[in-house]
Every structure is written in structure tokens, then in C-alpha cells.
Amino acid sequence: MSFYSQVADEQGVFKDNDLQVKLVPVQTSAQALSAMLSGSLDLAPGTPDPFVLAKAKGSDLRAVAATTQETVFQIIAGSKHVDAGGDLKARTEALKGKSVAVYGRGNASDRFVDFLFDAVDITGEPVYVIAGASKTVAAFLAGKVDFASDTVQVANLLEAAGKGGTYINCATDGYPTGYEGDKQMYWTTGKFADANPEALRRFIKAMDDTQEWVQDAANEERSSPT
């Protein structure tokens, strides 16, 4: 489930756009895609990989709203590393040879790590551990990983538990040019889009309104998931 949809629900953005929305928790983009194709979800959030692949295989899918304007992933660190100083290159170099949790190889999460290494001209790579979302949190709590490429929600959960937090956030740490990131988007089926054009228009407007709310500095603390 997207952090932005939670904000839209809690702050009344869906209601303001005349939408009745039921949020259904899912752990990964692949699970969201499967639920949508089975008909149990009307719209599903996720990074592009599984949706583009399914579309290439013939599924009638449409990307309808971007829920982030920057890459959805951050580099998260456990307590041992989270407060390490240094510039972007030094912090990226600290990942080399360390365990880094990602959603899968060839996925958006490990692409982000690979890009950082290339952008700051560091050879080598981390030791990738397949995890993601709740599995990433569990891996940190068990001391199985040093870092992760995951979302702000995971970083906040670790910080709340006193076990780590955000290590590199390219939205604020001046990440290198040449990479726009893998944005999280909402997807739907052609069947739903054709049958509900007005509801879809209002949903897109709600996501735009939510992005504006989250980016407002006055709402910074209120927009952090608990």
C-alpha cells in the first residue's frame, strides 16, 4: 500500500475529491499486480518493473498517477552505520562489501544501488540480500543486514524501533544527475479505466493534491507514517 494513499485517506484528500476508497495492504508490487489482475483491487501501486513486464505479456494495464516525484527508494542503515558522516561518495563507498537488502536482483531497488556506485565512480558492489518491506525490517532487527534499499516507511519503522533509519536520501542529499529514479505509480486495468473515467480523473487529482500536501514544509512531521 502506498504511503501517499494513506496520507490521502487520513487527511481527507479522497473525501475532498468525492471518492470512497478502501485501502487494502499489500507488501510488494508483484502482490499488488496479482491482486489487481484477479479483480480484488481496482488500482494498485508499485514501481514499474512487474507492471511493464505484465503489459509486455499482453495484460491491458495503464499507469494513471505518479505518487512520488522522486525515486521511491532510499538507502537505509542499521544503528551501527546510520549516523556515519561524509559526502555522498564516502557514504556510498561504505556499502561496498556490506550486506544490503533489496527486493530482488534486476529490480528497481538494486538498480538504485548500482546507479549510486556508478555515479560516484566506485567499483565493486555490496552483498545483496533478498528481502523487502516487512522482511527488510525483520532482517535489520535480527542483525542480518547492514543496509537496505527500501522506502521511507521502512526507514521510519527502524527509527521508531531505535534500530536505524535513513542513510542516503537522494531527494535531499543532492543525488547525481542522470537518474530520475523509479517512481512509484498507480496502475489499473483498461477495463476499469474505460468503465470509470470520472472516478479515475478524481483519483488522479487526489494524488496530485496529496503530493502537494506532502511537499508542504508545514506538514513535514504530520506526513511521516507512524
Results as ranks from 00 to 15, higher is better:
194 D>S: 14
194 D>L: 13
217 A>R: 09
211 Q>P: 01
210 T>L: 10
192 F>K: 03
177 T>A: 15
178 G>V: 07
187 W>N: 05
203 F>K: 03
214 V>Q: 13
190 G>C: 10
214 V>Y: 12
199 A>H: 00
181 G>P: 03
188 T>L: 04
212 E>A: 12
209 D>R: 09
211 Q>G: 14
207 M>P: 01
203 F>H: 02
189 T>G: 07
210 T>A: 09
181 G>D: 00
184 Q>H: 02
213 W>I: 05
181 G>F: 05
218 A>N: 12
193 A>P: 01
199 A>K: 03
210 T>Q: 12
205 K>F: 04
209 D>G: 08
215 Q>F: 13
182 D>A: 02
214 V>F: 13
183 K>Y: 05
175 Y>L: 13
190 G>L: 11
200 L>N: 02
185 M>N: 05
186 Y>F: 08
196 N>W: 03
195 A>E: 06
207 M>V: 10
217 A>S: 15
175 Y>G: 14
199 A>C: 00
183 K>M: 06
192 F>L: 06
193 A>M: 09
204 I>M: 04
208 D>I: 01
194 D>C: 06
175 Y>A: 13
194 D>M: 04
188 T>W: 02
187 W>I: 02
215 Q>D: 15
188 T>A: 04
205 K>G: 02
192 F>Q: 07
189 T>D: 06
189 T>C: 04
215 Q>Y: 12
180 E>I: 01
194 D>Q: 08
178 G>S: 07
203 F>C: 04
183 K>L: 09
208 D>K: 13
207 M>D: 07
193 A>D: 08
218 A>G: 15
198 E>I: 09
197 P>I: 02
201 R>T: 13
183 K>S: 01
200 L>F: 02
179 Y>V: 12
198 E>Y: 05
182 D>G: 01
177 T>L: 14
193 A>I: 00
211 Q>T: 15
186 Y>A: 00
211 Q>F: 09
196 N>Q: 11
190 G>T: 10
180 E>Q: 12
214 V>L: 15
198 E>L: 08
218 A>R: 15
200 L>D: 02
219 N>S: 12
177 T>P: 07
190 G>Q: 08
208 D>R: 10
183 K>N: 06
206 A>R: 07
191 K>Q: 07
183 K>T: 00
198 E>D: 13
190 G>V: 11
213 W>C: 08
180 E>A: 13
206 A>W: 05
176 P>F: 11
214 V>N: 10
209 D>I: 04
213 W>D: 09
197 P>A: 06
178 G>T: 05
185 M>L: 10
206 A>L: 06
183 K>Q: 07
207 M>A: 05
210 T>F: 10
201 R>E: 14
203 F>E: 01
202 R>G: 09
195 A>H: 00
192 F>A: 06
204 I>V: 13
216 D>H: 12
199 A>G: 00
176 P>K: 09
213 W>A: 06
203 F>P: 02
205 K>A: 14
196 N>R: 05
209 D>S: 12
217 A>V: 14
194 D>E: 11
199 A>T: 07
202 R>C: 01
204 I>N: 06
217 A>D: 14
186 Y>M: 03
194 D>W: 01
192 F>N: 02
197 P>V: 03
211 Q>S: 15
178 G>R: 10
199 A>Q: 03
202 R>Y: 11
218 A>I: 08
212 E>K: 15
185 M>Q: 05
189 T>H: 01
214 V>D: 09
207 M>F: 04
